[in-house]
Design a protein around this nucleic acid. Structure first.
Lengths: 230, 230
DNA sequence: TCTTGTTGGATTGTCGACAATCTGCTTGTC
DNA sequence: GACAAGCAGATTGTCGACAATCCAACAAGA
């Protein structure tokens, strides 16, 4: 018999597709923070009834990218500078842990996948596709989590990723400048292939700090604007 | 004007109440792992239509204590030994981080609340109310997370707590033995009041390891039973 | 006997309509 | 003009019914 791995077939429910559509819209910044989601309008646009739409929204509320106030509406979460600080400081701790767990598990498949994802980042960078660049960069960093073989950790990371992606997307849209042509992940990938785990962890922390500084500045500007508006 | 803090008024939607009811049933072990939730039956029992029930179930799926398979049903999550190991190893890392963040924030209110929650544990222990004992013990440990002033960390802890509570409840129900009369949290509370943060962190890790050993033994027995049944 | 197709019942997914609630405006009163 | 009461429109929450899907039992054929 031929050796062939079938992957699970596509999601068949409307609900799942709606979740994917909404998530994408939020994470790419098409839906802005604080914006209200009108159920009737969205359900008509998607040619779907409100039932599966509402169920999808409940999922995204629990995922942390929507918030719901009974009888008032469901909104895209507001991004405060504090949230970004919180997410990043936790991310540092988790990255440390993930690298530690994944380290002894590294194998040829890990290295191959590392290169594949790194290539994806480089490709998106060359294509000046910022949205895709953010997505692929996060997927690159997610590899150690997938290899850590800890389902709860992976799940936690995925939740965190949603927010980070949203923050990055907003940041990029706001600055609206060309993406950095140089490749910031070269060292990260090299260290993950190397023999010094501590060095890899240290680099990850610093790498995170770099991204973080730029994002935080943006977050602060957001808050200033908000307080002026109020 | 009198200084008075009003707490938010009760949840007004059926959905929220259903979520609370189901969560409680799952976390106390009234609904067993792997058990299927029949929508029609539950909605009739609760005298509620399926719409809010389904929305509530979506929330609990995202919360990680239910799993859903399209057109097949929604089930209470199965507990595998690996899951418990994963949850506990992550919990250790998070506890470390939480204590570190909360440490400089400790104030009189913190110490008062620490004592209050400790008393609650002791009370539940004396009353031989195992369910309540688990609940209060987790709330005691949650205090450092609340004081850490990191919303993402707190949220992560709360998700983790659901599972831990479920594991503990199942463990207790399975063993069905009287709860330990002695108080295991005395040292923990004392160290959190003291001056040596490292010592507190170390103790938390060891404390976790203790609970973990007992739980893991139970989890292994669960798996044995499952493989026999299959 | 094993495999394959069919069929009926049960359950989940989706829909359209109705009820409950909120919000902003208008109206009336002082 | 200021303020409270009440009304109208819009939106969310809930309901009951229908459609799509799955599963187990059974039948038919090799």
């Amino acid at each position: 018999m031929a050796k062939l791995d079938f992957s699970p077939i596509a999601d068949t429910t409307r609900r799942a597709e709606i979740v994917a559509l909404l998530r994408r819209a939020i994470l790419t910044g098409q839906l802005e923070p604080g914006q209200k989601l009108n159920e009737l309008r969205i359900s008509e646009q998607m040619r779907v009834s409100r039932a599966p739409l509402r169920e999808a929204m409940r999922e995204l509320v629990q995922e942390g990218i929507l918030t719901s106030i009974p009888y008032a509406g469901t909104f895209v979460v507001d991004v405060a500078a504090k949230d970004i600080v919180d997410a990043y400081s936790l991310n540092k701790v988790l990255d440390d842990f993930a690298i530690e767990l994944a380290w002894p598990q590294r194998d040829q498949r890990f290295f191959d996948e590392l290169d594949r994802r790194h290539d994806a980042v480089k490709h998106a960078t060359r294509a000046l596709d910022t949205t895709r660049q953010i997505e692929t960069a996060l997927q690159l960093h997610g590899l150690v989590y997938e290899w850590a073989d800890n389902s709860v950790l992976l799940e936690t990371w995925q939740r965190l990723t949603s927010r980070l992606q949203m923050y990055f997307a907003l940041h990029q849209r706001a600055r609206n400048e060309p993406v950095p042509a140089e490749d910031l992940h070269e060292t990260y990938v090299a260290l993950l292939k190397g023999k010094d785990m501590r060095a890899a962890q240290r680099h990850a922390r610093e790498h995170i700090d770099n991204d973080f500084e730029a994002l935080l500045a943006y977050a602060r500007s957001l808050e200033k604007r908000a307080s002026k508006g109020a």
